[in-house]
Amino acid sequence: MSVISKKICLVGDFSVGKTSLIRRFIEDVFSEKYLTTIGIKVSRKLLYLKSSSQEIDLVIWDIEGNTRFKSITPTYLKGATGAIIVGDLSRQETLNHLRDHINLFLEVNPKGMAIVALNKKDLIEENKLKKLIQLNNFQNHSHIINTIVTSAKDNTNVNQAFYELAENIISK
């Protein structure tokens, strides 16, 4: 069976950890340094999905989170089958914007599927975490596959987020 390519995007406010999640997923590294993504960075990773025994070439678009250029984003989202909508658990306003990002993505790609990643779990105390998860759960949204708490620093659930999205895209 031939390799199928799929475009996915990482969307979220600036500094929520989109680039870090991608770096963790692709290179398995984490850096504390904060580097702003300007425009776009395209990466790819070949995944083998056991459930469908299908190879998938995930072309990952890391889209800059800067709100100043918000108008650019819709074009970059075009043609994406999936997205990971990222929020920063330590900054409430980024969580507030999650719904906007989901809507924007679905506006451009009405058939698209997304995963919500609540990132930077490592910065949050255990007792607060539960409450935050409860508050930001999109489980009932028809286009949201899952809401996953992640940490690029501790490598928590990063692979799970990407694989779950990939599996879902392929099974469609």
Binding site: S5, K7, V59, W61, K78, G79, A80, T81
Partner: peptide, 8 residues
Amino acid sequence: IHKDSGLV
């Protein structure tokens, strides 16, 4: 290249 998605 596919115009929208940029897939090869």
